[in-house]
Structures are given as structure tokens and as C-alpha cells.
Design a protein around this nucleic acid. Structure first.
Lengths: 234, 234
DNA sequence: GGACTTCTGTCAGGATCCGGTCATGGCCCG
DNA sequence: CGGGCCATGACCGGATCCTGACAGAAGTCC
């Protein structure tokens, strides 16, 4: 897809430049407006393919800006960004003709996906140039299913109870299959800075084996690599 | 969340009825199409929340169907199911705008999890393009009914009194089911920028439990995910 | 093959962290 | 001034986690 012209209306410097950078990476041509007046001026001046509109703005509320845009019969797609998930804001924005609504803090990937979706809807894209597409937030191996959003795990359809760190370790393993990790590395990656003793890792691997190996004595997924650490094989 | 309309495109009778049955058990409303032409006709005719699309089809290849769906600017979520594990198919499917990809033979639990994930992801976007919302918009779960316009809540027909923030939190949960949220995230989303202490969230969740759980000691809807936050299960 | 060394699996005690609950106090609005 | 509403901190019980010890397995060297 050849890039599109996107207007970012955002007064927070950090967010604005961050978004700008990412949109450029995605192949678009972003422009930034710092407040409501500037936004309206730019929308009138140039022909944008879409507008990313923060609600909290100096000089003019984002909703006012949206209203002004639509009042001038401009149908440019608008995604409204707000810090609050409040009912009123959302309903108001959609009523005023917003195309989508995102609340801060947003996952960057989500926002980019929505931008793509809105652009795609607004202007039918040609068949080969679709975006990378996110894959589901579900991980699997063998008969085990991990739902990251729900933070639930099932094995053969029946739910498995895991503690916080057990879950984290499991996810790390499944995301890095067939790779040997030293205990120290696992401590750093999963436990974070204040790492504990290497013995801790053993305990947790033991738990995972108890819960996911057919025969915990003879593990096929959570394999010990003597002298080096552990490896996960799907 | 009330069930969703799912179109199953699958020529194998046994698989089709099996999936259909399971989706119905999961609370959705499945429809089956036997070949590519029928699939396209049904997609055009009705408004599905997602499509489960087999690649090997009589009359038309699944990828052709997907291409046709996207060509008509339809952004309905699509999960592609294929017997072949080929990378090429997968890449092609994702390029054409598939939302996820599963290879046969699949674990039923995995497929169901992926369907849930895709529906979950699609939900907010749909709220956006699915019309003005506004008056008469009602959310429900279990025997609870939430009237957004009136800002009233009833449980089993009898009205429940909620404070402002209790209502906002409830709506947020019901709008984002089966997803774990950290306290900080809830504070940001529901309370707004000037977030308070995490303890506040506990108190409000406690209130919701008192009002909507049959047994507040053993909550089934407003679930604690120790170490991570809270999750709402309808 | 046998003995020594090194490493890993396991267990249980105790420290620690986390979440539910309650009470207090501020705030806003009537 | 009074009454909801909301934020905060303290407290407690319980889940979870860390650690050290020990035994047994695996590897090594002769």
C-alpha cells in the first residue's frame, strides 16, 4: 500500500513524535498539529487521508474540532483518542461522526491496526498490499492452549490453575521454543531485576512439568540441558 | 456478552456439524455454508461477526472467497482453516486479510480459544463502526441489565442502585469481557488521568461483587487474577 | 567398572507479598 | 450543616515465593 497522509492532533510532545515515527515506519506521511486551531487550519489547507484526534487539547476541545470538521462537510476518517473510557465522550465522538475511538493508554499495535482498518475501509485497498495482520493472542503447544488476554491455560480442554510466575515462565518458554536458557537468563527475563537463586527456577520448571508433562519423570517439553539450563520443545 | 453470529464455511459434513454444535454450546449462533459460492452469498446476505473459512472447498478455493470478501470492503474477522501446513498458504491468507490461521488437525480447544480471541479483538472496532449507539443501548450479562441511556441497572428485574464510578467500572468490565486488567489500567481507563491508589479499585470491585455475585465470597463474574489484576467473565 | 565430583529434583519452613475488608477523613452538593 | 461519595491507609489471613538442605542422577576420571 502506498503511504497515506495522516494528521496527528496531539499536544503531548512525546506521544506526538512517537506516533509520528511509527506511522512513518508503517509507510505513511504523518503531520503533527499541537492544538485545535492548528488542526483545523491544516485540515482546511491540505487533503489528509485520515485524522488522529486527541480529545484533550489546548485552545479547543477535540470534540469541537471534530464538529468543525464535519460541519464543513469534510468526510475524512477520524479516529478519536481519549484518556478516559467515559461513556459520554465516546458516545459524543461517535455521534459527531468519528470513525473509531481509542482510549489511552493504548497498545501501539492496536492503534496501528485500527488506523489500517480505517484506511482500508475508507479506500478499498488493492489485493496484495494488505497490512501484516496481527496473529491471535493465543499460544499453543501439544494440547495446551494459552489465552494471554484472559490469562488462562487449558490442557485438553480442561483449565489448568497457574500462579502468576508459573504463567509468566510458561509464556516465555512457549514464545522461545527449542532454545536453551541458563537459569540466570530465565531469572533475568521472567523474574526481572531482583533475581533470586537459581534453585527457584528448578522449582518452577518442576511445577510446569507436573502440570503439562504426561510423565513428569521423563519430560518431553521442559527439558533439562545439564550444565546449561532448560529448553522448551513444543 | 451475548453470542455472536459465526459463519462456518466447511464442506466436510462431520467437521461442520461438530463445529456448529460446539459453537452453539459456547453460546454463539453458527451458520454453515458448504462451498465457496454459498459462503459468498451468505456473507453478502447477513451480517456475521466472524467467518471460519476452510481453504479446501468445492467450487471455489477458500482463498478466493477471502479475496472476494475483502474486495467488497468487508472487514468481518476471518479465521482460515487449512489441512496443509504450508507456509505459503498461511502467508497468502494473512496477506489477503485473514485475522488468524489454524491448521488441521486442530485441537478443538485451541480453535475455540482463537475464535474467542478474534471476537474479543474485533469487538471494540465493531462498536465503532456499528452505528450511533446512543439511546436505548443496553448491555447484559447473566440476569443483569444495564441501560446506558438511563444509567440504570437491574438484576433479575429489580433495580440496583450504583454510584457514578461503580456504574462506570461495571460498564467498562462488561464491555471488555474475559480480559485481565491491571489495577493501574483500570484506574487510567475508568478514573481518568489523575489516578488514585490501587486500593481504590479493590473497594469498587468489592462493591460490584456485593451487588452482582450470588456469593460475593466466591465470585464468578468479577474474578481476581492474583498478581495481575481483575477479569470480568459474563 | 568404580569412586569422586558436579549438577539437578524435591521438599518443607519461613519470609514475603497480595488482596479483602474496615474505618477514617476529605470533599462536594444539596 | 448533614449525607452520600470517594480516596487512603492499616490490618489480617492466606496464597505464593524463596531458600537451604538433602538425596539421587549424570558425568568424569582413573
Amino acid at each position: 500500500m502506498s503511504g497515506r497522509d495522516v494528521l496527528i492532533v496531539e499536544d503531548d510532545e512525546a506521544i506526538a513524535t512517537g506516533l509520528s515515527l511509527n506511522l512513518r515506519l508503517a509507510g505513511h506521511r504523518p503531520t503533527v498539529a499541537r492544538d485545535g486551531d492548528e488542526a483545523l487550519a491544516r485540515v482546511d489547507a491540505a487533503d489528509f487521508d485520515m485524522v488522529l484526534l486527541d480529545i484533550n487539547l489546548p485552545r479547543r476541545n477535540g470534540l469541537e474540532v471534530l464538529q468543525a470538521i464535519r460541519a464543513s462537510d469534510n468526510v475524512v476518517p477520524v479516529i478519536v483518542v481519549s484518556a478516559r473510557d467515559g461513556e459520554t465522550d465516546k458516545v459524543a465522538a461517535l455521534r459527531l461522526g468519528a470513525d473509531d475511538y481509542v482510549t489511552k493508554p493504548f497498545a501501539l499495535a492496536e492503534l496501528l491496526a485500527r488506523i489500517d482498518a480505517v484506511l482500508r475501509r475508507a479506500q478499498p485497498a488493492h489485493a496484495g498490499d494488505a497490512a501484516p495482520v496481527a496473529t491471535g493472542d493465543v499460544l499453543t503447544f501439544s494440547d495446551v492452549t494459552i489465552d494471554l488476554a484472559q490469562r488462562t491455560v487449558t490442557r485438553g480442554g480442561t483449565p489448568v490453575k497457574l500462579t502468576h510466575l508459573e504463567f509468566e515462565l510458561l509464556v516465555f518458554f512457549v514464545r522461545h521454543p527449542s532454545q536453551v536458557f541458563a537459569r540466570a537468563r530465565l531469572l533475568a527475563q521472567v523474574w526481572g531485576q531482583n533475581a533470586g537463586s537459581p534453585r527457584t527456577v528448578d522449582n518452577f520448571v518442576g511445577q510446569l512439568r507436573k502440570r503439562f508433562e504426561d510423565d513428569p519423570e521423563d519430560p518431553r517439553h521442559f527439558v533439562t540441558v545439564r550444565g546449561s539450563g532448560y529448553r522448551f520443545d513444543p
